[in-house]
Nucleic acid binder design. Sequence first.
DNA 1: TTTTATTACGCAAACGTTTGCATAAACTCG
DNA 2: CGAGTTTATGCAAACGTTTGCGTAATAAAA
Lengths: 348, 348
Amino acid sequence: MRNKPATIKEISQLLKISVSTVSRALHDHPSIGLTTRQKVRKLADELNYEPNQTAIFLQQGRTLTIGVILPELSESFFSSAISAIEDTAYKRNYTVLLAQSHDDEHIEKQLVEKMKNHRVDGLLVSVGKNTSSYQHFENLKKYNIPVVFFDRIPAMQNIHYVACNMEIGTIEAVSYLLKKGHRSIGMINGPATLFASGERKEGYIKAMTKNRLKFDPSLIVPCDLTEEGTKAAMNELLASKRKPTAVVTFNDYVALFAIKHATDLKIAVNKDLEFVSYANLPLINYMESIPSASVEQFPYLQGQKAADILLDLLWHKHQGVDEQTAYYKIIIESQLIENNRTDAGRSK
Amino acid sequence: MRNKPATIKEISQLLKISVSTVSRALHDHPSIGLTTRQKVRKLADELNYEPNQTAIFLQQGRTLTIGVILPELSESFFSSAISAIEDTAYKRNYTVLLAQSHDDEHIEKQLVEKMKNHRVDGLLVSVGKNTSSYQHFENLKKYNIPVVFFDRIPAMQNIHYVACNMEIGTIEAVSYLLKKGHRSIGMINGPATLFASGERKEGYIKAMTKNRLKFDPSLIVPCDLTEEGTKAAMNELLASKRKPTAVVTFNDYVALFAIKHATDLKIAVNKDLEFVSYANLPLINYMESIPSASVEQFPYLQGQKAADILLDLLWHKHQGVDEQTAYYKIIIESQLIENNRTDAGRSK
DNA sequence: TTTTATTACGCAAACGTTTGCATAAACTCG
DNA sequence: CGAGTTTATGCAAACGTTTGCGTAATAAAA
């Protein structure tokens, strides 16, 4: 066996028939006689023929490939999403071209360019947190390459996206704590620049007003998400007049820092001070001192929905449906999950 | 602007010159006059010309793409590896085509086939744990598509691979415990079918003999890696005649199960019973009760090395170097890392 | 038998590039 | 000023497919 894969042309020559006949035979085209069809099949098998997709891509103008650009592949949230995307793509016979931007706008731009060159049929993107200009995404529209954003959505008009609204989850979280009798609930929030911080704050406030309680702004302290910042935020909360008996933290990392700090201060976690967080980490289930509940953001689901939407768009495009002007805007509501360890694998 | 990307042909028509001239001009070929070169550049910019890679791929017979097939994308070990692979590929201008087998041999086969169709230049594979036949990989050799395996290596001859040897790390782990004064050290190992279990066992034995201590086989108990199995194993160890004062566990999951069980039994973790594990989980750093040390398996490094090797192979192949008969067999030695939480990000 | 369908296949263009070779024009030099 | 050299460009094939259209050969209908 030679090292170059067999081609249709070779088959056609060996069989002394035309390439078009071979091509059609391999596609079970009705206009090809049974005998030739069988001959072709047989020889193709013997030669281990495999269609050269790059040639087909060129011919058909599509690659059955979707590009995925994410900030950081090793983050648990994104790797869950990727897993979902790959699963969905696989089911519909698409392949995934993957790249990470490391939250660097310049790299992100390059990657979009590269994906365009590779002629991916569509793109799935979670925008880097430093990205401020969205021109590179606008360009894609001109070329009619569909893009679906998820989780981190750019501030653009007329885009498709899937995102998780933290507000409801936050309301649930705060209500959960209120129901358990807490009357002074602290929140360690993220930096004010993040959209997600706003949602959490809104949720907190709504939960309070819904329960006819006064909202004390000093109980929400921002934090830069580092261990130091978390400690500082904790100290601020603990020094507060209305010393909280429960804390909602921006994410699991912050929660762990806070819990650690509380433990150091001899505070009995979830007794003297109860914690609720947002689920970023897969194995919170395995740990001892963990938030008593978490707001789930459904990374797998987000990835899956985003991929589904993109593949639908591609399908319609391929069917020649006119430029459609409707935009998918899917909001997944976050949801509070109590952390009794018996329910496994909630993120999937 | 129209929605179809500009082509070289269009440029050539507008400028009334031949396509070859345009092509060369865009590549700064020396034989093209300065004026035409500039004209071409200008128009190309105006039209937002982007070379169609699929056409180039077809023409050049290579895709600057590497395929990556892994068992499970959402597992922390693999997502670190992926991240490394993408980083390395990006640096050398390659792109990553990604797929997961879910440890299913049949899917794995299909994926190999798909990658072959897509004409990836090379393949990076971590074999599914149920895969028993390696014919699909053998086929790749015939087509001269280089494959580099990592972490989970198939039992094949003449392959390139990168793997992590757990033996040294285990020796270090056991020696570490011995040095701390422990004389009865238990091990919760994985199922005997796993290659990795063997390495751990060997390491354990070597550490004992090296320190002129008697090896007590009853102190190594296998386990199916579930929570139940871990409990059972722990109980067996605790009931043993020479009740261990320290335990080495197969991985972090097992460690967490074991620690949880120990805590339930009111055993003071790392005081009455010290734990050492293997690093699978990224955030062991954030937790309170954790193994006092971990054997690091360097997922990022493994991914990086594997990608480097593959890209080197591709480079040589592209340079037309003859079929080389040497095979890369890289063994990364695992290494014991003490878990004082101040050193961050050790897996990267 | 002639006409009309039907069946089975081939021709050639098209997808967008790259590149070896040929060639026309301009320039150099003795 | 003609021969040789350089400079700048074009032609056409090739990469491996798919597919519209044309056309023989055969079969069915008139």
